[in-house]
Amino acid sequence: MPDDQIVPRLTLVPNPENQTQMIVAQNLTKVYGDFTAVAGIDFTVAKGESFGLLGPNGAGKSTTMRMITATLQRSGGDLTILDKDPDKFGPQIRAHLGVVPQADNLDTELKVHENLYIYGRYFGLSRKYLTKKIDELLAFAQLEDKRNSKVDQLSGGMKRRLTIARALVNEPEVLLLDEPTTGLDPQARHVLWDRLFRLKEQGVTLVITTHYMDEAEQLCDRLIVMDQGKIMAQGSPASLIAEHSSPEVVEVRFGSDRNAAVAERISHIGDRMDVLPDRILIYAQDGEAALAEIISLGQHPVTSLVRRSSLEDVFLRLTGRTLVD
């Protein structure tokens, strides 16, 4: 087993009825005054699953996340986390979860290893256990040579990895990450994805909120697409794409003043078309063929791109808006 494998691989039972449900939400609602942040959503998270909440900022993802980490009371509906009602057993539930909040709340006055130690102490874990665990977690987070550094000296990506390592100190039944890579540069994101992917491979139950569709596609077995507090669609990334989009997409740009005019002339091409301010998206079974047809009509785009359909397209299709404004 590789050094950084920190949990045994679980054998997942293929029959979903036999799966242990870690989180069950029914008609889950959160209301602030007149504003409904989460408008009655249903979902379940099974043991060993990697579950995503995808949606733009303000979709209700983080509010949902706070309710399922038992740190925010729901306004309505039913919620069970690890077979318990968070309204009655909040502290007990939280003690068995691992939480990576959107903003790092590491202590900057403590060293890297002290942050792990003191967090472990909140769970009442012994010094003996923690001494060993900290070594493992530093190896997993690739922070061994930063053990004695102060948190302020770490890069953004390192801080995130430390926060994730910290959340694993109690060997959580579910690891919940709120926007884990927001604000990180591409390279730091990839390192983080690699670490999370390892956890997923090792059978840790993951719940991730994100507004990055590539993150959701890479890490999530199953996800819900949220917008304005509601679930727009749910399923695996592949099934969502198959259901709500065509296999390929052609992106063409004719210049912002010409896009609309050209769109009318080529609207019969492909399965469907979206005209955005800066570009036209044509959903097609065969992207290259669709592009060839556009050019054969005498329309020569300034730039063109043929790509596979993504969750971004699913979101656009479902809401008429893009994920990242």
Partner: peptide, 13 residues
């Protein structure tokens, strides 16, 4: 490290 160490929070905490 060996995988046998992972006890899970329910047993550990």
């Amino acid at each position: 490290m060996s995988a046998g160490h992972w006890r899970g929070a329910t047993a550990l905490v």
